[in-house]
Amino acid sequence: MTLRRTEQPHDLAQGLDTLAPPAILSALVEGQLAALAALRPALPALQAGAEAMAAAIGNGGRLIYTAAGSSGLMGMADGLELPGTFGLSPAQIVISLAGGAASLQHMTGNTEDDVAEARAAASTVRAHDCVIAISASGATPYPLAFLKAAPQATRIAIVNTPASPMLAQAEIGICLETPPEVISGSTRLGAATAQKAALNAMSSLMGVLLGHVHDGMMVNLVADNAKLEDRAARIVARISGCDLASAHHHLAAASGAVKLAVLLASGARDIEDAAQILGAARGHLRAALNSL
Protein backbone atom coordinates (compact mmCIF):
# COMPACT_ATOMS: atom_id res chain seq x y z
CA MET A 1 0.00 0.00 0.00
CA THR A 2 1.30 3.45 -0.93
CA LEU A 3 2.02 5.56 2.14
CA ARG A 4 0.23 8.89 2.45
CA ARG A 5 2.65 11.75 2.05
CA THR A 6 2.42 12.63 5.74
CA GLU A 7 3.61 9.07 6.54
CA GLN A 8 6.57 9.10 4.17
CA PRO A 9 10.10 9.74 5.49
CA HIS A 10 11.33 13.33 5.38
CA ASP A 11 14.71 14.18 3.86
CA LEU A 12 15.76 15.88 7.11
CA ALA A 13 14.66 12.99 9.32
CA GLN A 14 17.59 10.63 8.72
CA GLY A 15 19.63 10.59 11.93
CA LEU A 16 17.42 13.29 13.46
CA ASP A 17 17.76 11.85 16.95
CA THR A 18 21.58 11.96 16.71
CA LEU A 19 21.72 15.69 16.01
CA ALA A 20 22.34 18.50 18.45
CA PRO A 21 19.19 20.36 19.65
CA PRO A 22 19.80 23.44 17.43
CA ALA A 23 19.95 21.23 14.35
CA ILE A 24 16.79 19.35 15.37
CA LEU A 25 14.93 22.60 15.92
CA SER A 26 16.14 23.90 12.56
CA ALA A 27 14.79 20.79 10.83
CA LEU A 28 11.44 21.11 12.61
CA VAL A 29 11.11 24.79 11.72
CA GLU A 30 12.01 24.11 8.09
CA GLY A 31 9.25 21.50 8.06
CA GLN A 32 6.76 24.09 9.31
CA LEU A 33 7.80 26.66 6.70
CA ALA A 34 7.54 24.09 3.91
CA ALA A 35 4.04 23.18 5.09
CA LEU A 36 2.91 26.81 4.88
CA ALA A 37 3.95 26.96 1.23
CA ALA A 38 1.08 24.55 0.51
CA LEU A 39 -1.39 27.41 1.00
CA ARG A 40 -0.36 29.28 -2.14
CA PRO A 41 -1.95 26.89 -4.67
CA ALA A 42 -5.07 26.77 -2.49
CA LEU A 43 -5.83 30.53 -2.56
CA PRO A 44 -8.81 30.28 -4.97
CA ALA A 45 -10.38 27.53 -2.88
CA LEU A 46 -9.73 29.50 0.33
CA GLN A 47 -11.53 32.48 -1.20
CA ALA A 48 -14.50 30.31 -2.10
CA GLY A 49 -14.54 28.94 1.44
CA ALA A 50 -14.46 32.41 2.99
CA GLU A 51 -17.30 33.55 0.76
CA ALA A 52 -19.37 30.53 1.78
CA MET A 53 -18.68 31.24 5.47
CA ALA A 54 -19.68 34.88 5.07
CA ALA A 55 -22.88 33.88 3.27
CA ALA A 56 -23.79 31.49 6.07
CA ILE A 57 -23.29 34.09 8.79
CA GLY A 58 -25.02 36.79 6.73
CA ASN A 59 -28.07 34.55 6.26
CA GLY A 60 -28.34 33.72 9.95
CA GLY A 61 -26.70 30.32 9.59
CA ARG A 62 -23.89 28.76 11.58
CA LEU A 63 -20.30 27.73 11.04
CA ILE A 64 -19.93 24.09 12.07
CA TYR A 65 -16.39 22.80 12.47
CA THR A 66 -16.06 19.02 12.47
CA ALA A 67 -12.89 16.97 12.88
CA ALA A 68 -10.96 14.63 15.15
CA GLY A 69 -7.65 14.82 17.00
CA SER A 70 -5.19 17.56 16.03
CA SER A 71 -7.39 18.73 13.18
CA GLY A 72 -10.20 19.16 15.68
CA LEU A 73 -8.00 21.37 17.83
CA MET A 74 -7.23 23.55 14.81
CA GLY A 75 -10.92 23.93 13.98
CA MET A 76 -11.86 24.65 17.58
CA ALA A 77 -9.15 27.30 17.93
CA ASP A 78 -10.44 29.09 14.83
CA GLY A 79 -14.13 28.88 15.66
CA LEU A 80 -13.95 29.87 19.32
CA GLU A 81 -11.96 33.01 18.55
CA LEU A 82 -14.46 34.42 16.02
CA PRO A 83 -16.92 35.97 18.51
CA GLY A 84 -14.14 37.92 20.22
CA THR A 85 -12.42 38.87 16.96
CA PHE A 86 -15.37 39.74 14.75
CA GLY A 87 -18.27 40.08 17.18
CA LEU A 88 -20.11 37.01 15.87
CA SER A 89 -22.77 35.50 18.08
CA PRO A 90 -21.42 32.43 19.90
CA ALA A 91 -24.67 30.72 18.87
CA GLN A 92 -23.43 30.86 15.27
CA ILE A 93 -20.33 28.80 16.04
CA VAL A 94 -20.59 25.02 16.55
CA ILE A 95 -17.66 22.70 17.27
CA SER A 96 -18.36 19.04 16.57
CA LEU A 97 -15.36 16.97 17.67
CA ALA A 98 -15.07 13.21 17.59
CA GLY A 99 -15.47 12.14 21.20
CA GLY A 100 -16.90 15.50 22.26
CA ALA A 101 -15.30 17.90 24.73
CA ALA A 102 -13.93 15.01 26.80
CA SER A 103 -11.63 14.08 23.92
CA LEU A 104 -9.68 17.31 24.40
CA GLN A 105 -8.09 16.11 27.64
CA HIS A 106 -7.55 12.51 26.62
CA MET A 107 -7.03 12.36 22.87
CA THR A 108 -7.55 8.70 21.99
CA GLY A 109 -7.69 7.51 18.41
CA ASN A 110 -10.78 5.32 18.62
CA THR A 111 -13.24 8.24 18.80
CA GLU A 112 -12.48 9.26 15.22
CA ASP A 113 -14.08 6.00 14.02
CA ASP A 114 -17.48 6.71 15.61
CA VAL A 115 -19.55 7.35 12.48
CA ALA A 116 -22.83 6.90 14.37
CA GLU A 117 -21.93 9.81 16.63
CA ALA A 118 -21.02 11.89 13.58
CA ARG A 119 -24.36 11.19 11.91
CA ALA A 120 -26.21 12.07 15.11
CA ALA A 121 -24.29 15.35 15.43
CA ALA A 122 -24.99 16.19 11.78
CA SER A 123 -28.74 15.70 12.26
CA THR A 124 -29.02 19.27 13.60
CA VAL A 125 -27.42 20.87 10.53
CA ARG A 126 -29.65 23.39 8.72
CA ALA A 127 -29.74 24.61 5.14
CA HIS A 128 -28.06 27.98 5.79
CA ASP A 129 -25.21 26.42 7.79
CA CYS A 130 -21.66 26.00 6.55
CA VAL A 131 -19.84 22.83 7.58
CA ILE A 132 -16.03 22.97 7.73
CA ALA A 133 -14.56 19.46 7.92
CA ILE A 134 -10.84 19.06 8.57
CA SER A 135 -8.61 16.00 8.22
CA ALA A 136 -4.98 15.51 7.23
CA SER A 137 -5.73 12.19 5.52
CA GLY A 138 -9.02 13.38 4.08
CA ALA A 139 -10.49 10.03 5.09
CA THR A 140 -11.02 10.30 8.86
CA PRO A 141 -14.33 8.48 9.47
CA TYR A 142 -15.91 11.04 11.82
CA PRO A 143 -15.69 14.20 9.63
CA LEU A 144 -16.27 12.13 6.48
CA ALA A 145 -19.51 10.71 7.90
CA PHE A 146 -20.52 14.18 9.08
CA LEU A 147 -20.11 15.57 5.55
CA LYS A 148 -22.13 12.73 4.06
CA ALA A 149 -24.94 13.29 6.58
CA ALA A 150 -25.26 17.05 5.96
CA PRO A 151 -26.00 17.53 2.23
CA GLN A 152 -28.37 20.40 3.00
CA ALA A 153 -25.52 22.68 4.13
CA THR A 154 -22.61 24.19 2.23
CA ARG A 155 -19.72 21.84 2.89
CA ILE A 156 -16.03 22.75 2.97
CA ALA A 157 -13.30 20.11 3.31
CA ILE A 158 -9.76 21.03 4.37
CA VAL A 159 -7.38 18.12 3.82
CA ASN A 160 -3.68 17.48 3.25
CA THR A 161 -4.06 14.53 0.91
CA PRO A 162 -5.15 14.89 -2.74
CA ALA A 163 -7.91 12.73 -4.24
CA SER A 164 -9.20 11.89 -0.76
CA PRO A 165 -12.83 10.95 0.06
CA MET A 166 -13.65 14.16 1.93
CA LEU A 167 -12.82 16.26 -1.12
CA ALA A 168 -15.40 14.28 -3.09
CA GLN A 169 -18.09 15.00 -0.48
CA ALA A 170 -17.58 18.77 -0.30
CA GLU A 171 -18.76 21.59 -2.54
CA ILE A 172 -15.51 23.42 -1.71
CA GLY A 173 -12.42 21.25 -1.46
CA ILE A 174 -9.24 22.78 -0.05
CA CYS A 175 -6.22 20.54 -0.48
CA LEU A 176 -3.09 21.65 1.38
CA GLU A 177 -0.57 19.20 -0.04
CA THR A 178 2.02 19.46 2.71
CA PRO A 179 5.32 17.58 2.46
CA PRO A 180 6.23 14.57 4.61
CA GLU A 181 6.45 15.31 8.32
CA VAL A 182 9.88 15.60 9.93
CA ILE A 183 8.49 13.18 12.52
CA SER A 184 6.63 10.76 10.27
CA GLY A 185 2.87 10.73 10.64
CA SER A 186 2.78 13.44 13.30
CA THR A 187 0.25 15.61 11.52
CA ARG A 188 0.07 17.95 14.53
CA LEU A 189 3.23 19.42 13.00
CA GLY A 190 3.29 20.56 9.36
CA ALA A 191 -0.19 19.43 8.31
CA ALA A 192 -1.84 21.04 11.33
CA THR A 193 0.16 24.25 10.85
CA ALA A 194 -1.09 24.49 7.28
CA GLN A 195 -4.65 23.76 8.42
CA LYS A 196 -4.55 26.49 11.07
CA ALA A 197 -3.04 29.02 8.67
CA ALA A 198 -5.73 28.18 6.10
CA LEU A 199 -8.47 28.57 8.70
CA ASN A 200 -6.95 31.87 9.86
CA ALA A 201 -6.89 33.23 6.33
CA MET A 202 -10.35 31.98 5.45
CA SER A 203 -12.14 33.23 8.56
CA SER A 204 -10.28 36.55 8.41
CA LEU A 205 -11.40 37.11 4.81
CA MET A 206 -14.90 36.21 5.99
CA GLY A 207 -14.65 38.99 8.58
CA VAL A 208 -13.60 41.48 5.91
CA LEU A 209 -16.44 40.42 3.60
CA LEU A 210 -18.94 40.88 6.43
CA GLY A 211 -17.70 44.43 7.01
CA HIS A 212 -16.08 43.66 10.35
CA VAL A 213 -12.63 44.95 9.35
CA HIS A 214 -11.77 48.57 8.52
CA ASP A 215 -8.18 49.47 7.56
CA GLY A 216 -7.02 46.29 9.25
CA MET A 217 -8.87 47.03 12.51
CA MET A 218 -11.48 44.83 14.19
CA VAL A 219 -14.41 47.24 14.16
CA ASN A 220 -17.11 44.75 15.10
CA LEU A 221 -15.72 43.93 18.52
CA VAL A 222 -17.78 44.93 21.54
CA ALA A 223 -15.65 46.31 24.37
CA ASP A 224 -16.59 44.35 27.47
CA ASN A 225 -13.36 44.50 29.50
CA ALA A 226 -10.64 47.04 30.24
CA LYS A 227 -8.24 45.78 27.58
CA LEU A 228 -10.87 45.81 24.86
CA GLU A 229 -12.19 49.20 25.99
CA ASP A 230 -8.72 50.67 25.50
CA ARG A 231 -8.33 48.98 22.11
CA ALA A 232 -11.80 50.06 21.02
CA ALA A 233 -11.19 53.67 22.05
CA ARG A 234 -7.98 53.78 20.04
CA ILE A 235 -9.82 52.37 17.02
CA VAL A 236 -12.60 54.97 17.34
CA ALA A 237 -10.07 57.79 17.71
CA ARG A 238 -7.97 56.60 14.77
CA ILE A 239 -10.87 56.29 12.35
CA SER A 240 -12.85 59.36 13.38
CA GLY A 241 -9.98 61.65 14.30
CA CYS A 242 -11.38 62.45 17.75
CA ASP A 243 -9.31 62.39 20.94
CA LEU A 244 -9.29 59.40 23.31
CA ALA A 245 -11.53 61.04 25.90
CA SER A 246 -14.18 61.67 23.26
CA ALA A 247 -13.73 58.13 21.93
CA HIS A 248 -14.44 56.69 25.38
CA HIS A 249 -17.51 58.93 25.65
CA HIS A 250 -18.90 57.76 22.33
CA LEU A 251 -18.16 54.14 23.17
CA ALA A 252 -20.16 54.49 26.38
CA ALA A 253 -23.06 55.95 24.42
CA ALA A 254 -22.83 53.03 21.99
CA SER A 255 -22.65 50.40 24.76
CA GLY A 256 -19.18 49.45 23.57
CA ALA A 257 -20.05 48.93 19.88
CA VAL A 258 -17.13 50.31 17.88
CA LYS A 259 -18.91 50.96 14.58
CA LEU A 260 -21.67 52.95 16.23
CA ALA A 261 -19.16 54.89 18.32
CA VAL A 262 -17.19 55.80 15.18
CA LEU A 263 -20.36 57.10 13.53
CA LEU A 264 -21.26 59.14 16.63
CA ALA A 265 -17.77 60.61 16.65
CA SER A 266 -18.01 61.34 12.93
CA GLY A 267 -21.25 63.32 13.00
CA ALA A 268 -24.24 61.02 13.53
CA ARG A 269 -26.92 62.88 15.51
CA ASP A 270 -27.50 60.19 18.12
CA ILE A 271 -27.32 56.44 18.62
CA GLU A 272 -30.57 55.83 16.73
CA ASP A 273 -29.26 57.83 13.77
CA ALA A 274 -25.97 55.94 13.86
CA ALA A 275 -27.77 52.59 13.95
CA GLN A 276 -29.97 53.56 11.01
CA ILE A 277 -26.99 54.69 8.94
CA LEU A 278 -25.08 51.50 9.72
CA GLY A 279 -28.09 49.35 8.92
CA ALA A 280 -28.54 51.03 5.56
CA ALA A 281 -24.89 50.23 4.84
CA ARG A 282 -25.48 46.57 5.76
CA GLY A 283 -23.01 46.84 8.61
CA HIS A 284 -20.11 48.11 6.49
CA LEU A 285 -18.50 51.03 8.31
CA ARG A 286 -16.76 52.56 5.29
CA ALA A 287 -20.03 52.80 3.36
CA ALA A 288 -21.75 54.21 6.43
CA LEU A 289 -19.06 56.88 6.86
CA ASN A 290 -19.29 57.79 3.19
CA SER A 291 -23.03 58.41 3.60
CA LEU A 292 -22.56 60.92 6.43
Rank of each mutant, 00 (worst) to 15 (best):
Q105I: 13
Q169C: 11
E117A: 15
P22A: 01
S71A: 09
V131F: 02
D113W: 04
N290Y: 12
G15D: 15
L28E: 12
R238I: 07
I183A: 05
H214E: 11
Q14H: 15
T6I: 05
S71V: 02
G79N: 02
I57C: 02
A56C: 08
G173L: 09
R234D: 00
R282Y: 03
N200D: 05
A192W: 00
A194T: 02
A13D: 10
A42S: 10
G211V: 03
V159K: 08
A133T: 07
A101Q: 15
E81C: 04
L167M: 15
A45F: 07
V159W: 08
Q105L: 14
L264V: 01
Q92G: 11
I277F: 08
T85S: 10
V258T: 11
G256R: 03
G31K: 01
A233M: 04
G207E: 08
A50Q: 01
M202L: 13
A20P: 06
V236K: 03
A23S: 14
L63V: 05
A254R: 04
A145Q: 05
M206A: 09
C242D: 03
G99F: 03
H106V: 14
R126D: 09
H212T: 10
A281D: 00
A116F: 09
L292D: 04
G58T: 07
A198D: 09
V115W: 13
L285Y: 06
G87Y: 08
A197S: 07
T108K: 14
P151S: 00
I174C: 01
V219F: 09
R5K: 15
A153Y: 04
M53N: 08
A118D: 08
L46Y: 08
T187A: 03
A139T: 13
M53L: 14
E51A: 12
G87M: 10
I183Y: 00
Q195E: 13
T193Q: 02
A127R: 15
G49W: 12
I95A: 06
A133W: 05
G283S: 09
H249I: 06
L205A: 06
T2N: 14
V236Y: 07
I277N: 06
L80C: 10
Q8P: 11
L16T: 02
S89N: 13
A56H: 02
E117N: 12
L82S: 02
E112H: 02
P179M: 11
Q92R: 14
N200S: 05
P22C: 01
I172W: 09
G241V: 02
G267S: 03
L199F: 05
I235L: 04
